[in-house]
Design a protein around this nucleic acid. Structure first.
Lengths: 169, 169
DNA sequence: ACCTGAACACCGTTCAAGT
DNA sequence: ACCTGAACACCGTTCAAGT
């Protein structure tokens, strides 16, 4: 006799992502997700193979958020860089999860396109993306300990890279 | 009646770091470390407050490795960037651990100095460090999926940044 | 067809008891 | 003074039994 579904995959992913931001990756336990979604932990395994797959789905959800933010800009490097930083600061744990190798499997695919379009070169896109990713990783990790205005530092970095790209043309 | 010490803190940190590289951060369990060091898990708590502190010590150990590599260069940006990449590829898990916020507490301190010395400016040092850190994070995560020679991409990035820095002077 | 309690293996950590 | 077995709380995961 069929039983009504008491939850859905999207609800599970959403709850997991909330827990990720609230308590960090270690806080995303199957029990906590299940409780938030109104079900017992074993039931989650009807929708998700295991915790690793759930985290991968969360990473993909975050990546699609980011590409939506990119799509909402005018497509210039400056605005893309701004949107990237806004995303990282709004969802720091998601940002870090997306950078995690296991979770990032395909998450960066859609994200890369607008940057390549803006820089008109794969090499240039990689340079800008690597710089922004490293800057934000270090900013979120609190690795910029020597003072200075981080907004300015971000602007300076972008301007310097753009200047270097112009010169090499 | 005193008991002879059956292990030491350095031995524990070394074993933990080996396990980190062999099995990833999740493989660094107190039991695995204890076994490798020839002791039972509860004994580790005589030398280390908890697993988090052990991981912090491992991160500091890795960071001091890196600054030793920096000290072995001639101090130019190019050589520093090269040494950074060589370290990341030789110890990918350690590299990622050092970037982890909890573990990186003070790990980056010594590492930053030679880069500031080479670029002669805090802003420039941050730009170069952010770019290299992001590049290596993405390289290790397999995020550069669109082909191309990564050695060339790394050289191109560095050259472009240096050109940009020259121009803005 | 989905949900659950019970169970298993594993983990971090504490602590009384051994030497 | 250090080491250990036993124990506790917690976690991911499986599965037979319920509806």
């Amino acid at each position: 006799m069929p039983t009504p579904e008491r939850t859905t995959l999207p609800a599970i992913v959403t709850s997991a992502r909330e827990l990720l931001e609230e308590r960090g990756a270690a806080g995303v336990t199957m029990q906590a997700v299940a409780e938030r979604v109104g079900v017992r932990a074993p039931s989650l395994y009807k929708r998700v193979r295991d915790r690793d797959e759930l985290l991968r789905l969360v990473a993909e959800d975050a990546a699609s958020d980011l590409s939506r933010r990119f799509a909402a800009t005018d497509g210039t490097i400056t605005e893309l860089a701004h949107a990237y930083r806004a995303f990282a600061r709004a969802h720091p744990m998601s940002f870090r999860l997306v950078l995690d190798s296991d979770a990032a499997a395909g998450a960066f695919r859609d994200v890369a396109d607008p940057i390549i379009a803006a820089t008109k070169s794969l090499e240039a896109a990689r340079l800008v993306t690597a710089w922004a990713t490293g800057f934000l990783t270090m900013e979120l990790a609190g690795a910029f300990r020597l003072g200075g205005d981080l907004d300015e530092a971000y602007a300076f970095g972008l301007a310097t890279i753009v200047a270097g790209l112009d010169r090499s043309r």
